[in-house]
């Protein structure tokens, strides 16, 4: 397949202004969100909507939502969803707070790759991502990640190192963006084709055992359906001990990776 000038239609949908967003879901999930803003050190990232609160039926939760913005102005303000270092460190603060008060953590993801800027390098994007990946992995409370759009690379993993992973049926999760995958092939494959070269779609990742539940993006009650799915996945995790949550989280990823052959081939 030769590359086309048009952006892949699947990607267009994920990146569209009217795509379901983290703030919409958070508003329905935690109507009285106590927003936690800023890392108390560098500043804050507008692309992150984070905090804690109670659902209408009284369940305490913490949320981490990343969105790209719904119009030109908000997209500029939110850096197109590319979190700055302050964003990762704010998320780390929210996660530590959630652990302290026993609140499960829900992350809602639709973000491009890393913020490629001298500032992010200067303030330790590497450290910030590593810290959040590790903190999420070691959480003593349950965590559930939802891919509303796309999420790639270590930045997305920092929010998806979770006990359960949910995806909308057209969402993507990969080691790198489809554009970056196409780039290493020097244009021999289109961006559309690149999506099918590696397992990154929801059905594919569900079939491979990584994704626990898939929600149809076309559902006209989408916000409600996403919240129901989160609650469904969260329920069995509530009675699980801290040590078990940590062990099961690691085991989830070990199980997925175990399908990869490592033995010597003859």
């Amino acid at each position: 397949m030769r590359s086309t000038k048009q952006e892949d239609q699947r990607l267009t949908r994920l990146r569209a202004a009217d795509r379901i967003s983290a703030p919409e879901i958070i508003q329905a999930l935690l109507p009285t969100l106590v927003r936690q803003r800023g890392d108390r050190l560098l500043g804050q990232a507008p692309a992150l909507t984070a905090g804690f609160g109670r659902t209408t039926d009284g369940l305490g939760l913490a949320v981490l939502g990343i969105d790209r913005g719904h119009d030109l102005a908000s997209r500029q303000q939110k850096n197109g969803g590319a979190l700055t270092v302050a964003g990762y460190r704010t998320a780390l603060r929210v996660v530590n707070h959630a652990q302290k008060f026993g609140l499960p953590v829900i992350s809602l993801i639709n973000m491009p790759g890393a913020d490629a800027s001298p500032e992010s390098e200067r303030w330790g994007q590497s450290q910030a991502i590593a810290d959040l990946i590790m903190a999420m992995g070691q959480l003593t409370v349950p965590n559930v990640a939802v891919f509303l759009g796309e999420g790639h690379s270590g930045g997305a993993l920092a929010f998806a190192n979770a006990n359960r992973i949910l995806m909308l049926d057209d969402a993507l999760f990969n080691v790198a963006s489809p554009e970056a995958v196409a780039a290493i092939l020097h244009g021999q494959q289109s961006v559309s084709a690149a999506i099918d070269l590696l397992p990154m779609t929801a059905p594919e990742l569900q079939q491979r055992g990584l994704v626990d539940q898939v929600v149809a993006h076309t559902d006209d009650q989408l916000v409600t359906k996403v919240i129901q799915a989160v609650r469904t996945q969260l329920a069995p995790l509530m009675p699980v001990s801290a040590a078990q949550l940590i062990a099961e989280r690691e085991a989830k990823f070990q199980r997925f990776v175990a399908a990869w052959p490592l033995e010597k081939s003859e």
């Binding site: 992995g137 270590g154 993993l157 080691v175 990154m200 990823f253 997925f256 990776v257």
Partner: peptide, 19 residues
């Protein structure tokens, strides 16, 4: 960085090593 040719199987080296 991560080896793109192995997709998420490579990416999860990050969290598994951190564990």
């Amino acid at each position: 960085g991560a080896r793109m040719q192995e997709g998420l199987y490579a990416l999860f080296g990050m969290n598994l090593i951190l564990a």
